[in-house]
Write a protein that binds this DNA or RNA. Sequence first.
DNA 1: CAGTGGTCTAGACCACTCC
DNA 2: GAGTGGTCTAGACCACTGG
Lengths: 250, 250
Amino acid sequence: MGTTQPEPVPEPKYWHLKTVLSDALDSEFAVGEILPNERELAARFGVARATLRQALEQLELEGRLQRRRGVGTTVAPPRMGVAVADPGHSWPGSVPDAWQLVDSERAVPPPAVARLLATAPDEAVHTVRRSRKTRGQPVAGELLYVPAASVPGLAAIEPSAGPARARAVLRELQRLHLEGEDRAVELGSAGAEDAKQLDRLPGAPVLLVTTRYFAAGRTAAVSVATYRADTCRLTFGEADRPPAVELLAG
Amino acid sequence: MGTTQPEPVPEPKYWHLKTVLSDALDSEFAVGEILPNERELAARFGVARATLRQALEQLELEGRLQRRRGVGTTVAPPRMGVAVADPGHSWPGSVPDAWQLVDSERAVPPPAVARLLATAPDEAVHTVRRSRKTRGQPVAGELLYVPAASVPGLAAIEPSAGPARARAVLRELQRLHLEGEDRAVELGSAGAEDAKQLDRLPGAPVLLVTTRYFAAGRTAAVSVATYRADTCRLTFGEADRPPAVELLAG
DNA sequence: CAGTGGTCTAGACCACTCC
DNA sequence: GAGTGGTCTAGACCACTGG
């Protein structure tokens, strides 16, 4: 008859498990350490494996754990802060940054992107694919869409391909006067190709960052970037302010 | 021996199901329409309910579906764009906005917040709780942390409580000269209280927005806001640029 | 190869909403 | 009370990693 939690609505087992595991992670495990396997953990807590997995999934979603098939479950390091907004505002690739050019081609963008660009639904545009690594780990992939009208000087070199072509598209883009940019962030799940690029399984949660670049009164380019939601913390306008030493990361 | 997908690694059933359902959603269902129940859908596709649920969970995560216990599964409207960055940069509540003050108290912030504020780990600060609705639907909850040092004029009225107290804290805060702000976005899951406030079950995915407000060379306040990840698309610096008519939402 | 996490099944019961 | 989604079980097999 203690006053402790009469708990008329008992919380689900997996939810309780999650908090127990979370506490254990804080106090008894070091970053990178590998946990007992799922079958053993389930037995230890007296639940079915599916139930345990539900708890692990939550913790992975929150960036506390990392699970790899064939390997095991390890304690994840704190999320990395990755800067999303360019300092000032600038075209992609105009300042040396963490992105690596992958390739470039001409393709018809998805309808949603075509609407943002105000191009015809079947009009091909230049695409540039980039990928971003932080501390050796892939954190994001990006697809940049550039209507032919934004880079009229590009026609001559069209036939080239690969990173060279990507460089050419960006170079042309940077000739324009950038008037502003626009961003949206939402939750998504990695498609098959994204997943491969991010070293995750398909369906893994990602943060979808859509950027519109404005020039000459029009939307001159649109980029769609997918960041690993488990390992990344997106930062905006990172302090031109006080030092506020790096607090949560290592 | 066609060239069509020899597919040496067949995709998981739930993944295939997801794409099938996604297509059906686009072509055969209207927003708000209610789907057949899970047991029937599972039977119709010849899979176990758990497998079907895996597909539905993905679609819900992507904001395509909305599920409510005791009611059913409905087709979700496109995500709402919610502006996160104040125009210009301003203290919370300094311009009329979509937030509603809930209450305010003195409390010791979680360690992570104390570090951001550079207060002692056991030092109590003022907290202000706000909630945000869009189109009648709760989309976010926020907890603002304000060290006593940032609002020295507040001591006198301390004993009051509720929205009145919240208003008082914000009023004092706005006397300071705001020098800048800082934001980070990451994926999280709703705690018990957040879930209630957002009308979701605990563990629901949320977008966690941490904002630091700078004044007098210090971090004068920190806010932690949780946005429903299923229904929200966070927007930043929404175009002081061209019209670019509202495209994806209704 | 043994061991891991990932997928899948067929059932059961619970909590909730609405009539 | 009937019908919905949410939780949980105890198994099975698969895909991948590593020695």
